[in-house]
Nucleic acid binder design. Sequence first.
DNA 1: CTCAAAAACTAATGCTATTAGTTTTTACAC
DNA 2: GTGTAAAAACTAATAGCATTAGTTTTTGAG
Lengths: 187, 187
Amino acid sequence: MARAGLDRNAVLAAATAIADTEGLEALTLAGLARALGVKTPSLYNHVPSLGALQRDLALAGMREANARMTRAAVGLAREDALVAIGLAYRDFARERPGLYAASLRAAPAGDAELQRAGGEVVATVLAVLSGYGLSGDDALHATRGLRAIIHGFVALEAAGGFGLALDLKESLTRLIKAFGKGLERGS
Amino acid sequence: MARAGLDRNAVLAAATAIADTEGLEALTLAGLARALGVKTPSLYNHVPSLGALQRDLALAGMREANARMTRAAVGLAREDALVAIGLAYRDFARERPGLYAASLRAAPAGDAELQRAGGEVVATVLAVLSGYGLSGDDALHATRGLRAIIHGFVALEAAGGFGLALDLKESLTRLIKAFGKGLERGS
DNA sequence: CTCAAAAACTAATGCTATTAGTTTTTACAC
DNA sequence: GTGTAAAAACTAATAGCATTAGTTTTTGAG
């Protein structure tokens, strides 16, 4: 039957491709097996379950998002750095919609690896905010705020929640800059 | 067989109850029929499909969210009004998690009623922002910004994205106030 | 009291994930 | 080279899901 020569990475790559092109909800083991030229149960030689596959996608998504954000912020500080990581995250969501969607609906509770990846994103944001000289609760509230801003904007855009023909990149840039200004004097 | 006496509203109410208590992903026609003491196909006398049911939940969710926000903003202006609608939306997400989740993943494209409900939420936000005397693109960018802030914060909180034992209501209030301050002078 | 519509039912189809058990291929030891 | 054991494919089966078709039962209006 001419072995297909799959391994875990090949399965994961094909799953990512499907999720990014056809949407995460279109990722099924049946369809994935079809795309790989194999019968569905064969996938269980490489992946424990559909849920585990989705979790792996989520982990890959978080890591890629974090990598893009840290790379974007290199050499920048304060407002410039804030805008850079916000736009980098937005680009990630636009270019890898499947990984992005997977990273959103993963349940980090009880999954150390996933929690660690999420923690690294938080650390990136915190690092960028360190340039504002915040301390204690102020820094934590600000971190939450920036994460909420970026996530909220990107999620609404991805869901098609912004109807008008008004430049989206401009909206996000303005929003982040306003937030940055708000950080310069207390709260 | 002693007719169960269902109608569309009874089915919708039971579906809402399941979604709010067990999670939207636990809402299946099979489980819903079980809860109503009826066989699955009987539901099709009242509801066209599972997808249509989810859409109805989404519509109900948007309407309730908007109702709560407008009610919360009555008699308030500027910063106070901003904070009030933000906290009202957060309460909605916490108290009606099923309706909230349904309202997020509905696809408004091609659904006039859903679009209208979404438009009313936008109108509420715009009305609150009118107190800042913004005009043209400034008002539109600001509307996007406030929606992103509120949605982002609430979504991250609902997903358990905020780990620390730091007061969440305080975080959101600070974030919205900072945004309000940013509106007072340009951008 | 009749009768037609509404609401329940049973039976069936096709999709999904998943498990069990079987065959085939490959790689490595000798 | 050859034997053997693990890995990777397979077939077959189960269970849950949404959905459709066709049938029976109940109800309410005339």
